[in-house]
Simulated assay, not measured.
Amino acid sequence: MSHSADAPAIISHLSEISDRYDALFCDLWGCVHNGIAPFPDAIAALQAFRTKGGVVVLVTNAPRAHVEIAKQLDAMGVPRDAWDMIATSGDSARAAMLTGAVGEKVYFIGEPRDDTFFAPMKLIENPVTLTKVDVADAEGIVCTGPFDPHAEPDVLRPQLLLAKTRGLKLLCANPDIVVDRGESREYCAGAVAKLYTEMGGESLYFGKPHPPIYDLARRRLVQNGHDISDERILAVGDGIFTDVQGGIGEGIDTLFITGGLAREETATTDQPNPEKLAQYLKDSGQNPTFSIGFLR
């Protein structure tokens, strides 16, 4: 479905368009939950889609393995019948890391809870042996997020400057710049990678909007016996430069959730203000197939 940029197609429920699709590539944070609790309407919408035979792939820029995300969703109270499988930026990035994308001696930027990033993967045979070292001895950088998600990424400038002068590549496990955990905004690995790139360093990306995570999502579909063409897949998410730009880049339809990261810019209370939304899309240069205030 095409429409002009000056009149975005706004729907009020997923069910209005769901018959056109056999699979959803659905973002998690800002769509299904807020980092603390699930959104009941979103859960109901995903359950209804699956009841009609649709497949829900949760496609997330989380820097962790899909099994870790499943545990997190269980703990948060997201029911298992709301989704089928999970593709994470972490898994895409881990696969590259374990095949030697940034060498064997790596400088790790991240929180202690993200140590699981270094766990082995079934998909990878004969992985390289990784050792965590100081930046001065490293062959590359692995970043799952800043050491302190509430501090400006600029605090890492000294380490990044040394890394840049040594020509190190930075493997970014999560391209997101920021997320909102409840009411509190936090920096992600993407903010560190962006700073490194601006400083003249080289950052490698694996999550949305970059192709590796979509390849992984499609592989998960095939692994689970689903042969679904791109025109029957809908990408759902609240990140205009991750979920929407990524879906458009992959040639799949997109549903933009305006009540997440762009709620202020689109003046979303229940639904977006059409004029504000049109301006926001024009400013961002992205044109989603559909928009909706919240997933429901």
Rank of each mutant, 00 (worst) to 15 (best):
H66P: 13
P38K: 12
L130A: 15
P127K: 06
I86R: 01
K71L: 09
E68W: 07
A70I: 09
D84G: 03
C31A: 13
T99R: 14
E125I: 08
P127A: 12
V59G: 04
A44E: 15
I43F: 04
T60W: 01
T116L: 07
V133L: 04
P38R: 11
A101V: 01
K52H: 11
A138V: 05
D115I: 03
K122F: 12
G53V: 03
G90L: 05
Q47R: 11
F117M: 12
D81F: 04
A101T: 00
P120M: 10
G53E: 09
N61W: 03
P38C: 15
V55T: 08
I36F: 13
C31W: 03
R64G: 09
D41F: 08
D74I: 13
D137A: 11
P38S: 12
K105H: 13
A48C: 06
G30N: 06
I141G: 00
G90P: 04
F49L: 08
I109A: 02
A95W: 04
K71W: 10
F117Q: 02
R113A: 06
T88Y: 07
V102C: 04
F39G: 00
W83S: 00
P79T: 08
S92R: 01
L28F: 10
R64Q: 13
V106R: 00
R113Y: 13
R50K: 14
I109K: 00
V55C: 06
T99Y: 08
C31H: 04
G100Q: 13
F118Q: 06
D81T: 11
V106E: 00
F108Q: 02
G100M: 05
T144D: 05
A37D: 14
F147C: 06
T129A: 10
W83F: 05
D74K: 12
L98R: 01
L123V: 06
C31G: 10
T99L: 08
A136N: 14
G77K: 09
K105T: 11
V106T: 00
L130V: 12
S89P: 10
T131P: 07
F147M: 14
C143H: 04
P146M: 05
F147I: 14
G140P: 00
T99A: 04
C26M: 14
M121G: 08
T131C: 11
P120L: 06
D91A: 06
N61M: 12
E68Y: 04
L130M: 03
I109T: 01
G90I: 01
F39I: 11
D41I: 07
L98F: 10
P63E: 04
L58R: 07
I86W: 02
M121V: 04
F108A: 15
N34Y: 03
F39C: 04
N126E: 15
V102K: 02
N61Y: 09
T116Y: 07
A62T: 13
G145K: 02
V102Y: 05
V135H: 01
C26Y: 07
G103N: 12
S92H: 05
H33M: 09
R80Y: 04
H33L: 07
D134H: 11
L130N: 13
T60N: 12
W83D: 00
D137N: 11
P120V: 05
E125W: 08
G35N: 07
A101K: 02
F118D: 09
D74Q: 11
Q72S: 14
L58K: 05
A136R: 12
V128Q: 05
M76S: 08
A44F: 07
A45H: 03
K105W: 13
G54D: 00
V67F: 14
